[in-house]
Design a protein around this nucleic acid. Structure first.
Lengths: 333, 333
DNA sequence: TTGTAGGCGTTATCAT
DNA sequence: ATGATAACGCCTACAA
């Protein structure tokens, strides 16, 4: 592949001039610029990224580490990140931690090795990621979930409040024995949504029973098992708060298997408004999170840090709010 | 950030020894290895990726360029790529072309600059991407869509045949005026699915009317408009083949808006079996594509090329097949 | 305005 | 088995 020297040779100038010409630096004779550009074009020259990174000690790449590419919440977030990053000339590397601390760690290692300019991380909540990042003083912003034990910038959604509201909504609609299907203990969003659920129960003066709470991985399969156990128990819940979109699928499948109908038999609210939520029967009530904005704001914050205005300035936490979209799955009629 | 020299100094050896020790090269005194590892660990040393890439003239990164991260087909494919790449020690950079040739081109540029080891590309079908890649002789494999005008490896799905079968299925179920909502002209999968649709019409001896075909971007919004136009026309179709999953959402929304019921009023089959397809009312008949496998096989092919066994060996085209999953949306009862 | 030269951090070659 | 050293491709003082 053509190098800068090849271009220099062909244009009859020094490599320094080529570099300057191609990077629009200072004043270079327009005539030479033309020759250089022509030569570069001719050779299909493309600057060597690694070499440039090495020399400049910086890259134009951001890493975005999320726990599930197949979850619409995260893909929407990814778009937000992408759009902002792209506009600023940065590329985004998307990595899947699968909510496994080991994989998260591994990708963090790669990101650090590749000397990415910054990291957007949705931490599993367990593990020592924070430590790792601080040591290498790579700018980070936590998205969707806080980075435990360290004051990094963070963009979160107030899902505790949203969960509380969703729970109250269930109560107002007349559901009395409320259950909750949430994510693994230790995952902040899972814990918060459960806390919000309990807040709601308290305000609505409903009994809180740990038998009606199930924790499992944030996936459809886990939720299917959890919902089955819950709904076939002696005293099954008549209302359910489901902590994310993928889980909602598992829960709805289970309802169908058991011949139960959402709304009529069991009130259901789930986190995340996926495009299909209004198409299922009955349409699913959801807590709509501003996923795109979480990503966009996160990227802005990160770019600002990278811009160095504030190497270690006070860390900020932005909390966006979610809103309830009530549909037929929380209505008896 | 600590460099190899820092480690060397601390361990009291040369940088060469550190490099060898850390890379498990040849024979290094075990005692020294221990000292080196300890020092590296102590300093939180992490090899500099760019420097290493520059020196070795190779990276352990694969680029995957797709047209829509929010489309479950592509995310499933991404997982296939990821799993295979990861197992082989490669990272995957996910890029979104949005089906815009310009963006595709841009990401290709970045990939080339960063000297990725290989590219998995789902080409928009227009544009000169193939050219670009050949010039820089970076290994490529086309996934989901062929790379026009150039014999690269490719992993495709026989969507023409699948579309034909889906169309015949509609016909067998008694639908007579069949319509098709497909993607933009020039996008191979969009064209193929339409061709398959026409194949089916011919075999079923049904009339083919261009008034019943609509092309639009592969997104829900476009499909919504297309479906609306189709269904409010003078002679609306009574059966619809929808070319992808996102479009299916638009079509189903339109049906709901118009008070039409899938199955009873209009038979509907769509490409891609999303997790929610069986939850909508009525459950959606689909053409299930082996998305994960497309990605996995594509990655394997790419790694093989990179492995250099066959720098320019004959290009292979792997065609996987899709299968119809009939549900209630194609049944009058 | 242009050219020369040094160095970013690694790895690989060549001595020792 | 280990160490000095050159080179990967680029950018940027510094010199001219």
């Amino acid at each position: 592949m053509a190098t800068i020297s090849d271009v220099a040779a062909m244009a009859g100038v020094s490599t320094a001039t080529v570099s300057r010409a191609l990077n629009g630096k200072s004043t270079v004779d327009p005539e030479l610029v033309a020759r250089v550009v022509a030569a570069a074009d001719d050779l299909g020259y493309r600057p060597n990224g690694p070499a440039r990174s090495l020399r400049k000690q910086e890259t134009a790449v951001l890493a975005l580490i999320i726990s599930d590419v197949e979850n619409p919440f995260f893909t929407a977030m990814a778009r937000g990140v992408e759009d902002v990053a792209h506009a600023a000339g940065y590329s985004v590397v998307l990595c899947n931690s699968d909510d496994e601390p080991d994989k998260e760690r591994e990708y963090l290692d790669v990101a650090l090795q590749e000397r990415v300019a910054g990291v957007l991380l949705s931490p599993t909540g367990r593990g020592d990621s924070a430590e790792l990042l601080r040591v290498h003083d790579t700018p980070v912003v936590a998205v969707d979930r806080p980075l435990p034990g360290w004051g990094s910038d963070a963009v979160l959604v107030d899902s505790r409040l949203a969960a509380k509201q969703a729970t109250l909504h269930l109560a107002h609609q007349g559901y009395r024995r409320l259950g909750c299907v949430t994510g693994p203990s230790g995952v902040p969003t899972a814990d918060e949504r459960l806390a919000g659920f309990r807040d709601g129960l308290r305000v609505a003066k409903l009994r809180s029973s740990s038998a009606l709470v199930r924790r499992t991985e944030f996936k459809a399969a886990g939720a299917r098992r959890a919902a089955h156990a819950l709904l076939t128990a002696d005293e099954p819940p008549d209302g359910l708060l489901v902590a994310n979109n993928s889980m909602a699928i598992g829960v709805l499948e289970t309802l169908a298997d058991l011949g139960l109908r959402a709304g009529r038999d069991v009130g259901v609210v789930a986190f995340d408004d996926a495009p299909w939520a209004s198409l299922v029967d009955p349409p699913l009530s959801v807590v709509a999170q501003p996923a795109y904005d979480v990503g966009a704001v996160g990227a802005q914050l990160l770019l600002r840090r990278i811009g160095d205005e504030n190497p270690d300035g006070n860390s900020s936490t932005t909390t966006l709010s979610a809103h309830l979209v009530a549909r037929a799955s929380t209505s008896h009629t």
